[in-house]
Simulated assay, not measured.
Amino acid sequence: MTAEPDSRTGVDDAVSAEPAATAAPSPAPDTAVRWPAVIAFVLLACGLAWAVALPLWLGEGLRSPFAGLVLPAMMLTPAAAALVVVFAFRVPARGRARFLGLWPLRPAGRFVLFLALALVVPVLVVVATALLAGALGLVRLDLVGFSGYAAQLAASVPAGSALPPVALLVALQFVALPMGAVVNSVLALGEELGWRGWLQTALLPLGTWPALLLTGVVWGLWHAPVILLGYNFARPDVVGVLLMVGGCVAWGVLFGWLRLRSASLWPAVLAHGSLNAVGGIVFVLVAAGTTPDLGLVGPLGVASWAVLAVVVGVIVLIRQFRPGALAAPRTPAVTPTEGEPR
């Protein structure tokens, strides 16, 4: 969807002080989806994901010694697919950094604000998900003694080893989250360059909501090679894939909004890194002897969908999805050739 540019979008509107007859024209954004490029991107991203995950399928699955290399490598496949279609299909033909959201990083105040939101909101959503699941009886929590986390620590060290107070260790887990988010953002960029950078932007002519939802569906299906091995939900079947699609659609709306509202890819990258960093926090909060069902109470589980629905609902109610608030990517003005007025 193309929004009318205004001071809130942070998108430069190439305006010339010269008369209209001599000014270089500013081309309009694409008004139709370039479906051949979109189909090529989806097939390439998913095909590369299956190819990268093949050693796990031919070996011991997620217990394979190669899993620690395969999973991070798989996160780079959407970026590889995006780069191929950018240069092979020339979508876009120019203004590629702006199209992908890599540049410019302005206005600075808004950019920093959305980076802060990207860092904090996923942590709040995941913690709220655990609290909601506990309130609904989907999982037993211990928010005082953190007995489940204490049991994990005791099992990881030799018997009789002295450990710091578990409450201090829990606090350190939360203190370390910003650094964890930044570290995880390095690999998250590989995904976000493809999903929110290229695919969502390419689908925007369909409208904001169709672009957000379709991008989330593709993102979820892309995970199939590892979900069908039991990754995330321990459900190596179609139910696991559907849970992943639901989680990716829910989070994809939030990440996509960050991308559009900030006119930059980087808040979505940091939000993805923050989600990956806080994803295991439910295991810190559960009571001893409890094995949480991540399909229900995990960061991508059903309870998280409800929390994210509330978050997105608030964003809608405060009119942050209105066209004037969203910065639609634009291609830059044509550079005049030599001898033409600038």
Rank of each mutant, 00 (worst) to 15 (best):
P164Y: 08
G256T: 00
W222S: 03
E60Q: 15
A263M: 02
A287F: 00
R106P: 00
L124Y: 08
L177I: 14
A49K: 10
A130N: 06
L58H: 05
A328N: 05
V245I: 15
L242P: 05
A133F: 08
L69D: 12
G10L: 02
C248I: 05
L212K: 01
L206Y: 02
V121L: 15
A268Q: 07
F99G: 01
Y231E: 14
F89M: 05
A81R: 03
A82G: 04
F233K: 06
V144N: 08
G95M: 00
P27H: 07
L308A: 02
V253W: 00
T290K: 09
L326K: 00
G59Y: 12
L189P: 09
S16F: 08
V249W: 02
S304W: 01
D237W: 09
F66H: 11
L172H: 12
F41Y: 14
A167P: 04
V269C: 07
H272I: 05
T22H: 14
L296Y: 04
G289E: 05
E4K: 13
P158R: 09
R8E: 12
G230K: 03
A176L: 15
G313L: 03
P267K: 03
G68M: 12
L163E: 07
G240T: 08
P225G: 02
F111C: 07
V84F: 15
L138W: 13
W257N: 01
W257K: 00
A53K: 06
P210C: 01
G194T: 10
G194S: 12
G295Y: 02
L326F: 00
L141G: 01
V286S: 01
A303P: 00
A277V: 02
A24H: 10
N232W: 06
L62E: 11
F41V: 02
L300M: 13
L131A: 11
V38D: 00
Q200L: 15
F174P: 10
F99P: 00
G197L: 05
G298E: 05
A97P: 04
V239C: 04
L228V: 06
G145N: 09
F233C: 02
V52A: 07
L119G: 09
P122Y: 10
V310S: 01
Y231T: 02
F114M: 14
Q320D: 11
L213W: 07
A176G: 09
W266P: 09
C248S: 13
L285Y: 02
A51M: 10
G137A: 04
L300P: 00
V312H: 01
V125P: 03
A45W: 04
G59K: 11
A202P: 08
V85I: 06
A128F: 04
S16A: 07
F66A: 13
P323K: 05
P336H: 08
A37F: 00
N184E: 13
T290P: 09
L270F: 06
A20F: 12
G301S: 08
V307L: 00
G47T: 01
A151Q: 14
R94N: 10
G109A: 09
E18C: 13
